[in-house]
């Protein structure tokens, strides 16, 4: 119990929790994009911000980047600070794309978690969703900032899983 409260006060547990939440969100977001890259390519095209030759590359690789960063964050695989950095960069790009299209009055389907629904949504619905996506992504960006910049009390970064184990054996202990 003391160990748990120590971890909470030291910031390790909250950081892990945030990492897992971010990881789950990104891994889940990648699912439908990997399942149907054609649909995702169409969504990227509808943002009207990407050169035609890059649309398919984005549609093929972005979901996998989301999935790999998600897995690293969920399972605490070494490299999760890098994953957090990538997550933050992706969120910035998504927010920039949505914000730019909001600013120029071009309604787009976010394409974040589900297939294209543009066929059945009105302009007003799409604009409303875009504002919501901006707010949601800003919240997630704060979480990324917390996971990335938070330093525990000791001043050290949260330990990678491998570093936590293996307390030093007493001197002179016989080799196994």
């Amino acid at each position: 119990m003391k160990l748990l409260s120590d971890k909470v006060t030291a910031g390790k547990l909250p950081v892990r929790l945030v990492e897992v939440i971010l990881g789950v969100v990104f891994a889940y977001a990648s699912y439908h994009k990997i399942a149907d890259p054609v649909d995702f390519a169409h969504m990227v095209y509808m943002y009207k911000m990407t050169p035609g030759s890059l649309i398919n590359l984005i549609a093929i690789y972005l979901p996998w980047i989301e999935l790999v960063t998600g897995i690293v964050l969920i399972f605490g695989i070494p490299g999760r600070r890098g994953a957090a950095l990538l997550t933050g960069l992706m969120l910035l790009v998504f927010m920039g794309a949505i914000g730019f299209n909001l600013a120029r009055g071009h309604p787009v389907d976010c394409g974040c978690f589900e297939g294209s629904g543009t066929h059945t949504k009105t302009r007003e619905q799409l604009f409303g969703e875009m504002w919501w996506v901006l707010i949601r992504d800003a919240g997630m960006l704060l979480m990324v900032g917390f996971a990335f910049f938070w330093r525990p009390r000791s001043g050290r970064l949260p330990e990678e899983p491998g570093e936590e184990k293996a307390p030093l054996e007493p001197a002179g202990a016989p080799a196994a």
Binding site: P37, Y45, T50, G52, N56, P107
Partner: peptide, 19 residues
């Protein structure tokens, strides 16, 4: 479900007037 790695989409930046 496969798409070409390099696509060709003319008008990728153009917004239709109606939108």
């Amino acid at each position: 479900l496969r798409i070409k790695f390099i696509g060709h989409y003319p008008g990728a930046f153009e917004i239709a007037k109606k939108s």
